[in-house]
Computed example of a mutant assay.
Amino acid sequence: MAYRPFAIGPNAFVDKTWYDAHATFYGDMTGQETMQGACGYGNLFDQGYGLETAALSTALFNEGLACGACFELMCVNDPEWCIPNAGVIRITATNFCPPNYTKTTDIWCNPPQKHFDLSMPMFVKLANYKAGIIPVKYRRILCHKNGGVHFQLNGNPYWLLVLLYNVGGAGDIIDVKVKGSQTGWLQMNHNWGVNWLVSTVLTGQSLSFQVTTSDHVTLLFNNVVPTNWQFGQTYDGKLNF
């Protein structure tokens, strides 16, 4: 089951319009500071995202529902700091850049600012690191991932928390359902970042998932988790958007 309707607007990946924003960076060239974060991802190298990532400001983060979305960015209108002919970088949203209402300067992540806090290796592809902050243009793009969507199972016998990563297509998820081998389809609730929760005992059952991305494409991952699964394990759904 899958369909891909046409969509428009600054948050729709098929919109080819470039929008204004700013970008900074956090951490150093190793990118260790970009691991973990508000989307719930763990080791971004192991999960396939590497350093091609960004933390989004409140105006873009959408309370975590934007996690996994992919963007193109280019440095513009700053001949002092933009690297000539640098072209574009492509990043995945993996973290949140929190607002700071106690300051009157350096408030780039405060609403309604659209802002990308990049890993340092990505920032220096566009500008000299001494710039600190640069004006950029951005647009949504399709995410291209290798392999299937991954499902990491967490929680306890009374509730299941599933972290979804390596999601292609639109990248960001708006709906997840789970079905045990002894249940019908159960609606999962968005908990935080890319974590989805259901308060049902599902231990000892094989699991299937129905995942919908923000462009309303839905994929069925049938029996991707065997009956002997354990909390903390990750399963490859074999399919992707």
Rank of each mutant, 00 (worst) to 15 (best):
M1Q: 04
A2W: 01
Y3R: 00
Y3F: 03
Y3A: 00
P5W: 02
F6Y: 02
V14N: 03
K16F: 02
K16R: 11
K16N: 08
Y19D: 04
T24I: 06
Y26T: 12
Y26Q: 11
D28E: 14
M29R: 15
M29I: 15
G31C: 05
E33I: 05
E33C: 09
T34N: 14
M35V: 03
Q36N: 15
G37L: 06
C39A: 09
G40C: 13
G40I: 10
L44A: 13
G50T: 14
G50I: 14
L51Y: 10
E52H: 14
T58Q: 15
E63K: 12
E63C: 00
G64F: 03
L65C: 01
A66W: 00
A69P: 01
C70Y: 06
F71Y: 15
M74W: 00
C75I: 03
D78F: 07
C82P: 04
N85L: 06
A86W: 14
A93G: 03
A93S: 11
F96C: 07
P99R: 15
T104C: 02
D106C: 02
W108K: 02
W108Y: 14
W108I: 02
C109N: 03
C109Y: 04
P111I: 09
H115A: 11
D117I: 04
L118Y: 05
S119C: 14
F123Y: 14
K125F: 12
N128A: 15
N128Y: 15
K130C: 07
A131Y: 10
P135A: 04
P135N: 11
P135V: 03
P135T: 05
V136E: 01
Y138S: 01
Y138V: 01
L142Q: 13
H144N: 15
H144K: 15
N146C: 00
N146S: 10
Q152Y: 03
G155Q: 07
G155A: 04
W159L: 12
W159V: 06
W159N: 15
L160C: 03
L160Q: 08
V162I: 10
V162S: 05
L163Y: 10
L163H: 14
L163K: 15
N166V: 08
N166T: 10
V167S: 06
V167C: 05
G169C: 11
G171T: 05
G171Y: 07
G171V: 06
I174S: 06
I174N: 12
I174R: 08
D175M: 03
D175C: 01
V176P: 14
V176D: 12
V176F: 13
K177P: 01
K177E: 12
K179R: 15
G180T: 12
G180R: 13
G184Q: 07
Q187I: 09
N189K: 13
N189G: 05
N191P: 02
N191Q: 11
N191R: 06
N195G: 08
N195I: 03
L197F: 13
T200C: 04
V201H: 14
S208R: 11
F209H: 11
Q210D: 09
V211R: 05
V211Q: 06
V211H: 07
T212D: 09
T213I: 12
S214G: 11
S214V: 07
H216R: 08
L219W: 08
L219Y: 12
N222Q: 12
N223G: 04
N223H: 13
V224F: 10
P226V: 02
N228L: 02
W229I: 00
W229Q: 02
Q230N: 13
F231V: 00
G232V: 05
Q233C: 00
G237Q: 10
G237M: 09
K238N: 00
K238W: 01
L239P: 00
N240V: 05
